[in-house]
Design a protein around this nucleic acid. Structure first.
Lengths: 358, 358
DNA sequence: CTGAAAGCGCTTACAG
DNA sequence: CTGAAAGCGCTTACAG
């Protein structure tokens, strides 16, 4: 038996049993089912355990019971504020309920997602899979082996938490219409296909209802740069307001506008989504709150609650995101001031941005 | 034996051995030490394993070998861009080297940090502990049980990765001095005591070297609000530039200035640190690059390389952060324009900010 | 209420 | 090169 590297031997249940003058079974029960023991016994055992620095070995327990006490959270990009907030909520909730959390960052790739799911399977009791990039059959394959709860993906028969931002986007379009905007754009990204599609649809429908013209723009992977690169296209399209798939892209759009000497909301209005960084941008973004942390916590609850049932979790849990109005939305500029969509003379744009519609 | 909830029975080594007509030992070796077997045997075993869908059970392997193939990353706040970038680098590197990563968010508390370290100990081969809040004796206690690499904390005899931002801050002070600033402030936070202390010292020394007056301000927990709340104090102190412990605080300072109708860098210069969000703020922040992702990856390497040695990692690995100049720093305003430090008439500050120096 | 014993699924000296 | 067997540290029917 090699011992774990660089490690002092840890006290085991056996040592505690000896020292306390009881059997291993009793020590075990003192930790896992103390109600089966007399309070005196429990106290004695726990006391000597504490004195020896004994902690039940989760690995051994897992092998014996088949339950690991772990879950894994797989997501496309921890650096994205939506996911880091989600992770925070998920990890905290898991900890609260006695579970430890593995983290897997798939770097926005389906392949890595698949690998992560496979490698971690034996070490967890279930997965929370946020905004999966994996195709449906593969997700179902994994879900057949281990309980899975997905976030922001519609998969009948698999437990899921859906953040419904459609009402928020609908409200945002209403806000813009009320402010006099007549031509708006939705800037989406394939990243969160389900989320982005949902938002695009809400904007399109609400736009129609208000008699607005709505342009659809695809920004590619959602990022600050992608948002900035859209701006030329937005201006060329002659819109006066843009709703972005998330706040990162929205902030990029504002940066692109600023580079061209355009002010927000004076010359152009911008709406974001997620509401994590929205309060910290300049100007603070009007944004649809996506309740990220709550989505993470709810997914964990759904997963953990499912462990008690024979069948895996299967229902869907919908969270509604509401519009938070800040300073990036304002009255439509006077028609003449935006007639051509041409940037003013003092444009600061360094690149002619060939990739505005990549 | 209860089975893991909602799970189909998984094939074990025993079944594979039967089907392949070999012993369990041979199956085991086919996976872990195939060089001990004839190629034919290996092929036969791996073939039937594949056919049966057998995958070695990591938990059983861990119990037997004492090596889990897991590490844990403990940090104060995943929502902070510094840590999410760090985590990204650490997780990717661990994955590359065949390790899975547990995530523990201590919510900036020493107590949770201690709990996390204890709970996870049996399930990991080692820890990466970023900017620990725990006091030294407790860190050493944990480090005595499992290999630990700390990030941004000076602990003799424990493996550590230190991001040395002092040169960057020194350069930033030089930049400001060159731009004509005579009175500057360092806005620190207890959060990352080691980091913040290091930065404070660098600013103080460089300030003295350049003949500047340097005010030290404590912002409390590093956050956007904390930064904003500092502004009144900064203006009252009569400084024309501030260097913040990180970009989040720096962005908050810029927001507080904007609320008072002051422009950056026209009326006031701001420098941040970390350089994750710095390029996305408005205006883009001059910032000291902290190489977050690299720090995370290096810490993982240091930890994993240590597993091969008898003694735990003990050296320190220093990464140097360099100054990145963007648009938040500019010439000192003309003396008269900032004489009183009183905000202009059209101040937008809603609150009189009683807690500017909490 | 408590204990003796089998078993969870692997790995690894020890033989051959 | 391969196998029989002990052991990793727990948990849990089964007795008492």
């Amino acid at each position: 038996m090699t011992r774990p590297p660089n490690t002092k031997p840890t006290p085991t249940i056996r040592l505690v049993a000896q020292e306390a003058g009881v059997s291993q079974a009793t020590v075990s029960r003192a930790f896992s089912q103390p109600e089966l023991l007399t309070p005196a016994t429990v106290e004695k055992v726990l006391g000597t355990a504490l004195r020896l620095g004994y902690v039940p070995n989760q690995v051994a327990r897992a092998l014996s019971t088949g339950r690991t006490g772990n879950i894994a959270l797989i997501l496309p990009d921890v650096a994205n504020p939506f996911f880091s907030a989600l992770m925070r909520g998920a990890q905290a909730q898991a900890y609260k309920r006695g579970y430890a959390t593995f983290l897997g960052d798939s770097d926005e790739t389906a392949h890595l997602e698949d690998m992560l799911l496979g490698k971690l399977a034996a070490q967890v009791d279930g997965f929370v899979l946020a905004s999966p990039r994996l195709d449906e059959p593969l997700i179902r394959k994994h879900a057949a082996r281990k309980p899975v709860v997905v976030i922001n993906r519609e998969l009948e028969g698999i437990g899921r938490v859906l953040v419904d931002t459609a009402p928020g986007f609908t409200a945002a379009v209403g806000l813009l219409a009320g402010l006099g905007h007549r031509a708006i754009a939705y800037v989406g990204a394939p990243r969160s296909s389900w989320s982005s599609q949902q938002r695009a649809r809400a904007v399109a429908q609400a736009g129609t209802a208000h008699g607005l013209s709505v342009a659809q723009v695809d920004a590619g992977r959602p990022s600050h740069e992608a948002g900035r690169d859209c701006v030329a296209g937005l201006l060329a399209a002659g819109v006066t307001a843009a709703l972005a798939v998330d706040d990162v892209v929205a902030q990029g759009i504002m940066a692109g506008l600023a580079e061209r000497g355009l002010s927000v909301p004076g010359d152009f209005s911008v709406v974001g989504c997620d509401d994590i960084i929205a309060a910290t941008t300049y100007p603070p973004l009007t944004s649809v709150n996506a309740r990220c942390a709550r989505a993470g916590a709810n997914a964990v609850d759904l997963l953990l609650n499912g462990f008690a049932n024979p069948a895996p979790p299967t229902g869907s849990h919908v969270i509604t995101g509401e519009l938070v109005i800040r300073s990036s939305t304002g009255p439509a500029p006077a028609p003449d001031s935006r007639a051509s969509g041409t940037p003013p003379a003092e444009t600061g744009a360094a690149t002619p941005d060939p990739s505005s519609r990549k």
